[in-house]
Write a protein that binds this DNA or RNA. Sequence first.
DNA 1: TCATTAACTACACGCCGTTTAGTTCGTGTA
DNA 2: TACACGAACTAAACGGCGTGTAGTTAATGA
Lengths: 240, 240
Amino acid sequence: MTSATPSRRERLRAETASEIKRVALRLLAGGGPDAVSLRAIAREMGMTAGAIYGYYPTRDDLITALINDVYTSLVDTMEAARNAYPRSDAAGRLLAWGEAFRVWAIGNPAGFRLVYGDPVTGYRVPEGGAAPEAAHRACIGLAELVSAAWPHVRAGQPSAGHRWSDFAPALSDSIREAFPELPAEAVALALRLWGRMHGLVALEVYGHLRAQTTSPEKLYRAELLDLAASLGLGDQAGTT
Amino acid sequence: MTSATPSRRERLRAETASEIKRVALRLLAGGGPDAVSLRAIAREMGMTAGAIYGYYPTRDDLITALINDVYTSLVDTMEAARNAYPRSDAAGRLLAWGEAFRVWAIGNPAGFRLVYGDPVTGYRVPEGGAAPEAAHRACIGLAELVSAAWPHVRAGQPSAGHRWSDFAPALSDSIREAFPELPAEAVALALRLWGRMHGLVALEVYGHLRAQTTSPEKLYRAELLDLAASLGLGDQAGTT
DNA sequence: TCATTAACTACACGCCGTTTAGTTCGTGTA
DNA sequence: TACACGAACTAAACGGCGTGTAGTTAATGA
């Protein structure tokens, strides 16, 4: 913010910092979470491990940066998939979002583990622990899907008596601002959507589903359709 | 199998082998997955790390044994909770199973990670990769719940055209033997139940839900009720 | 009694994250 | 232009890890 013209030094520095992340992501994709080590990254860059401490104060800070990058790319992907369908096609947008989630996860198992599992050996989430902004965006995206379906949601949804105070202020505030017509109950529904998409995908990524079925994608598709139906968006064609 | 009377040596040996697992589980519960190391276990037992190789050929074999134990204890817990309700109370049994799953997971986060996540640093599932017997039992348990509800499942369940060949032979065979009246579609439904329970619980265990809501249990309860309703077991009292 | 052998230790190897002290070199200023 | 500063980096060390291997102890059984 303070620098109008980033000096040459600053440019080199920023470039190195992002090269570290780039190499880390490559190692992650190539050799799984355990292949991401400061020593391996440094080796790959022709440096020594200690040098990385000039860019990230600790390994976990680097991992945290990676998580944010990867999480953001996931949410970007889902939003793009959703936006390929017009606002009028609530079912299409829901299915697109859900499919994009699974496709990304299956294509990026290491990334999925990074974001939703134990990222790498010994990593602990930072104390301050503000959820990454990407998680917030994901929740908003889900709320948007719920919002579009809300008029059709059959009143039969079990009301567990959710209140606004049940949710993180950051979440409540954004949703009330973006979708003023939604009740707290709808936020609960959005989080449940999240859980429903997450369940089968997590089981598949970690190999539990493949031990039981040869076609997890069929299972997931059925789940998405059931999910759409339960939101009152039933039978609007199973677009890709 | 060959020994009628286990010799003193054999008894000591078996006792040591299980003490290793016991200590490992204690370390796991106490210090998370990273606290489980051969050196730590040996230290705790007044041995050296190498000694453990006399009992488990490699660290991953020990971890595999732990996973089996922990997974089995989870399934035992869920089955017991379910069996507290009579067969006639299909909804009660479903809710009990589901609640038991979450309660166990929240009370045993390290165990949950061991079974459903990346167990510990560098662990890779064994090649032969037969899914643990406990996973099989869990699937059967879910199928039983579906079986009890099957007459009520509204025909509207989206049919994704599942066939018996879509599932692992071990699973298909057991289910066809135990519940001859069930179609392949019902197995798919059982696996989807699994995913639905798994989703919110996994998000909660890994800290993603708590960043968004202060009452994950309410969310999960609502999900279970919705799930029961979608199986046609609606409105049969929200028993504990 | 004594050879066999299971059980275990001691040590080494290469990996890891992290810290510290020392070195190199581009940069802004006098 | 000369020089001092400081950023960037290396080298080496610490303790921890899983895993082999060679050597030691002690219980077993003929």
